[in-house]
């Protein structure tokens, strides 16, 4: 198609002279073209630098400093502590390190369950709604609503439902189904993990649903028709056509869900404020507390850097491994 020609021409324009340069005005146009993409990128680049990259570097620098409340006004004067903050953060025998490790474990378990369930529900709904039926549009709109709702309103409504005395959940579980002897607490204690997981899955599964719905539309219908004529049942079609075709979509989707869930701050913060119960102490809120409640920003930054390193490591392992798996099956 025509798609390759322009790019080839431009690639040539940078190094060797283009095959057929337009006469006279050619030179001027080429120079403009050479800087033009950078001009287009400049705003995005400047903003990314200002809001993401420079602060990140500052954050990394801060993690090597003893930045306590005494230095918050002029943080340049805070003493260098080398790896001191990191040592505190990973020393699992001391309270700070032990708490961080516990929070990390909780976050891992939470993320695995939340991503797994969100993906499962999203895939199930998308596959079951692949064929048109009456009311599909309405159902799709309903299913996408949790994704469209602002995080804080969703969490607030769930908090109301999880209330001890006047909540819907206890009304159903205790008053109507008599599953528990007393009214359980959901927002404090061990049950808070379940509450957090419920809200997270409720919020995230529609995103999986949306992405997989979009992915399913790229699978040619005649694949199904051909396989049906060859005698393949629904289950076999799912395993032989649908899931393999979705693999590239799933590769990105699962990674994005993982990163969002692992980094999630909004849900636990709105739900528990500054003090999450130990079982629901997700790492982002934990670091926030470690920084802002104790006013020790050096240690907080070191924890954030460790978190970033962990996420980079997971991504660096995940992408080649999944790509290889895809390559082998293809």
């Amino acid at each position: 198609m025509t798609t390759t020609t322009p790019r080839l021409r431009r690639a040539g324009g940078k190094g060797a002279p283009p095959a057929a340069p337009p006469a006279r005005r050619g030179a001027a146009r080429r120079i403009r073209r050479g800087s033009l993409p950078y001009l287009f990128l400049l705003p995005a680049l400047a903003l990314e630098l200002l809001v993401h990259l420079v602060p990140m570097i500052v954050g990394i620098v801060m993690s090597f400093k003893g930045l306590t409340q005494f230095y918050i006004r002029n943080w340049n004067e805070a003493p260098w502590t080398g790896l001191g903050n990191y040592k505190v953060a990973v020393d699992v025998d001391a309270p700070v390190g032990a708490d961080l490790l516990r929070s990390f474990t909780v976050t891992c378990a939470f993320t695995l369950l939340a991503v797994g369930l969100a993906w499962l529900l999203g895939t199930a709904a998308a596959v079951l709604m692949q064929d048109a039926f009456r009311g599909r549009g309405w159902l799709r709109a309903l299913f996408l609503t949790p994704y469209a709702l602002p995080v804080y309103t969703s969490v607030i409504v769930w908090m109301f439902m999880f209330q001890h005395d006047n909540g819907l959940v206890n009304h159903v579980v205790h008053d109507q189904l008599h599953l528990t002897s007393g009214r359980p607490f959901w927002l404090i204690g061990d049950n808070s993990f379940v509450a957090l997981l419920t809200v997270s899955v409720w919020r995230n599964w529609p995103f999986a649903f949306l992405i997989i719905t979009a992915g399913l539309q790229n699978i040619p219908r005649d694949l199904y028709e051909a396989s049906a004529i060859d005698g393949a049942g629904v289950w076999r079609q799912l395993r032989a056509i649908t899931l393999p075709s979705l693999r590239p979509v799933n590769q990105v989707l699962v990674l994005v869900l993982f990163l969002w869930t692992f980094n999630d701050f909004n849900v636990p913060f709105v739900m528990f404020g500054g003090s999450a119960p130990p079982r629901a102490d997700l790492i982002s809120v934990h670091i926030y507390q470690a920084s802002f409640v104790t006013w020790n920003f050096g240690t907080g930054s070191a924890m954030s850097v460790l978190l970033l390193l962990f996420l980079l490591l997971v991504t660096a392992v995940y992408l080649p491994v999944t790509a290889k798996l895809r390559g082998r099956d293809a």
Partner: peptide
């Protein structure tokens, strides 16, 4: 990114996408 081929194109794309994985808490205070 879509229409031009230029030096640093890939670096730009990867950098921009990888900011998605930054924990917000890391750059909040800075």
């Amino acid at each position: 990114v879509s229409r031009y081929s230029f030096r640093g194109r890939r670096v730009f794309t990867v950098t921009v996408l990888s900011t998605q994985m930054f924990p917000g808490i890391l750059f909040l205070l800075p």
